[in-house]
Structures are given as C-alpha cells and as structure tokens.
Nucleic acid binder design. Structure first.
Length: 337
DNA sequence: GGTCCACAGGAAAGATAGGGTC
DNA sequence: GACCCTATCTTTCCTGTGGACC
C-alpha cells in the first residue's frame, strides 16, 4: 500500500504547497532583495502548531535557492539546539566552518567572530521554535551579522517578544510578520489527498476516510499526516487493500501520541522517570511527585534540579504545570481536541 | 494578623566532561 | 599524563509568594 513513505513524514517538503500562497508571497517578497545581492528582511512566521510555518519557510527558501545561484541556507530547530553555542555551531556547520571547532574547547565568542568573518554567498537562516532559545541574545548577534538574513518561526508573538530585551525588540519591531491560522477541514482534506496520491497506491483511501482524519486532527496538518501514516501502516500490517473507517479510528490516538512519544524518547534517564510517574499517576503535587521520584532512582537529583527538569518538559509540551506556588500541580500533557 | 510551610525560580558557585596543549 | 579551557549540568543559597493554621 505504501509506495513512498517519505511523503508521509512530517519533515517532507512538497514541490507545491496548497492554501498558503499568500504567506509564501509575503515571505518571498521579504527575501527578494537577496536576488539583487542585498540583505533580505527579517521575517517572523507566527501561528499554532501544524499550521505549515516550518514547511512554508523551508519551501520558500528552497525556491529562492532555485532562483539565486549563490546562496546558502540552514535550518536550525531551536528546540533541539537551544543554547547560543549550539545555534552558532549549527550555523557555522551550514557553511562548512566547523572543521576545527570542538564542542568543549572552543569559546562561544570564537564561533560568533567566525560567523561574522564569513564572506561567502548570502546566508538565509531559518530558526524554528525560536521561542525555545535559552539565550535570545544570539538573535541580536545574528541581526548585526552582515550577509545573514533570519527567518524566525514561533507559536506566539507575545511570548517571544516578552522574552526579548529592549534593544532587540526595537530592532525587530519593523520586521515582516506572517501570521498563520489553523487549516480548515477542507484544506486539510486536500493536503492529505495530495500526500495519499504521492505516497499510497491508487484508491488506498477514500474521501470519507480523509475527512475523518482531517476532523480528528483539528486543523493540525502535522497530526493529520501522522494519523494518515499510522492508518497506512495498520492497513499494511493487516494486508488490507483499503484504509477503512475502523482503521482510521484506530490510528487516531496513535497519530496524536506519536509526536509526543518521539519527544519523550529524547528525555534523559531522570527526566524519563519523572515523566513515567506522571503518566502512571496523572495529576500530582510537586511534593508527591518528588517523593515518588526519590523512591524510583538510586541517586536522586535535588528538588531544584527536578524543578528545572519539569520546566524543560513543560517547554517540550510533555507536562502541564497548573496553579502557582502551593497550588501548583503537574500532569502529563493530553490532547483535549 | 502572625507564623509556618511548600513551592517557584534567580544567581552564583561547584562539578563534570571533552578536547587542546605542552 | 598533567594541566588548562570551555560549555553544560547540578547544587546551594536565597527571595518572594500564597495557602493553612492558630
């Protein structure tokens, strides 16, 4: 049934994008000066998860690369590369300047000055999940770096700007903002239909099943594609020729949970223990959670370190922290849509 | 109202680990 | 191999806040 599994992966960038022409045009215009050898405008892509921000950023930059011979680009996911050092390292990696850089012995300033000394083709950098950056001063440094144009991707403008200092806010105030809304049901159906056409055998899934998936995904294309992928996998395992309504219904919970499961796999041992305790027990007070954690590990970390872990897991959207001070509770993140 | 306690989170210092240099 | 440098992680100390209890 599955002809090309790549098109069912969330990171797949299609040749043509649907329902985001206006956003593509605005971003293309912001980057247009690069075609004449000038720096592009700093752009913000803002909107909820699964609204196509990352896809559009990569698609537009890729299209620019087709039109401009001399251009470099690099994608950085700030969720994974969340320190200043890692971002600069990744960017230098994109222009092949990390040969003699060592993660533990090269000062950060050396990385920045090396990037500032870069005199190659214009460099377009996409910083995805930029609100997850620990030290946002790197944005200021990149803003001032000649030959670098930034495309910044984040969920909410307010959260991002509240974490920036004044000098950065004032400089970024005039940047291009492109707002993304959740996909409508029919838009999601059409996106899924294209993916099914490219990746599955003919007639593997009907319009009714695509609508069911789109409805369950609630406007999130990433979730929708995840459900489609799971449904195709289930149908394949059972030797079915078509994806039925029952298979779709079975695939929905897994499709939603898969993104989170992949994130949870990246947790370190002690973080994983905390997460598993919350999955098992549901909502817990910080005190009870710490006690349960202490009983599960041989050499427990301090409460302060556990608080840092929980804060990080909250950023990862694995854990929900509710209430303040003594009323604080933690529970595993669950989809309510 | 005063006190106690649990909690969050900032700041600073210490510990750790990887790599370079001599 | 000893020592140095660095980023990152962890701990310690601290302050502020708010609910519970008397």
């Amino acid at each position: 049934m599955i002809l090309d599994a790549r098109v069912l992966q969330p990171e797949f960038i299609p040749q043509e994008v649907e329902h985001r022409n206006q956003e593509v045009n605005v971003l293309s215009n912001a980057l247009k000066p690069i075609m004449d050898g000038n720096p592009g405008e700093t752009s913000f892509l803002l909107g909820p998860s699964g609204a196509g921000k990352t896809c559009i950023a990569q698609f537009t930059v890729e299209r620019l690369r087709e039109n401009v011979l001399d251009i470099n680009s690099q994608y950085v996911n700030c969720w994974q590369d969340y320190t200043r050092f890692r971002v600069l390292y990744r960017l230098l990696d994109g222009v092949g300047r990390t040969v003699d850089i060592h993660r533990r012995s090269t000062p950060k300033d050396e990385l920045l000055s090396r990037l500032q000394d870069y005199d190659g083709p214009h460099y377009v950098v996409i910083l995805d999940e930029v609100d997850q950056l620990e030290d946002k001063s790197v944005l200021y440094d990149l803003y001032r770096t000649r030959g670098v144009t930034m495309v910044l991707v984040a969920n909410r403008e307010e959260e991002l700007f509240s974490a920036l200092d004044e000098r950065l806010t004032s400089r970024l105030h005039s940047s291009v903002r492109i707002k993304f809304e959740k996909y409508h049901l029919d838009e999601l159906v059409s996106i899924l239909s294209a993916r099914a056409r490219w990746g599955l055998t003919e007639g593997a899934i009907g319009d009714q099943q695509l609508a069911l998936i789109a409805d369950a995904a609630a406007g999130d294309a990433r979730v929708a594609i995840g459900i489609l992928r799971n449904a195709a996998r289930l149908a394949d395992q059972r030797g079915a020729e078509r994806i039925s309504n029952e298979i779709v219904r079975e695939a929905v919970p897994d499709g939603r949970a898969e993104i989170r499961r992949k994130t949870a796999e990246k947790l370190r041992e002690h973080q994983r223990v905390l997460y598993d305790i919350l999955i098992e027990n549901g909502e817990m007070s910080p005190g009870d959670l710490y006690e349960a954690y202490r009983e599960c590990v041989e050499e427990p970390k301090t409460k302060r370190t556990v608080r840092n872990y929980l804060q990080k897991m909250e950023h990862y959207r694995l854990v929900v922290a509710e209430g303040e001070k003594r009323a604080r509770t933690y529970r595993p993140y669950e989809d309510t849509s």
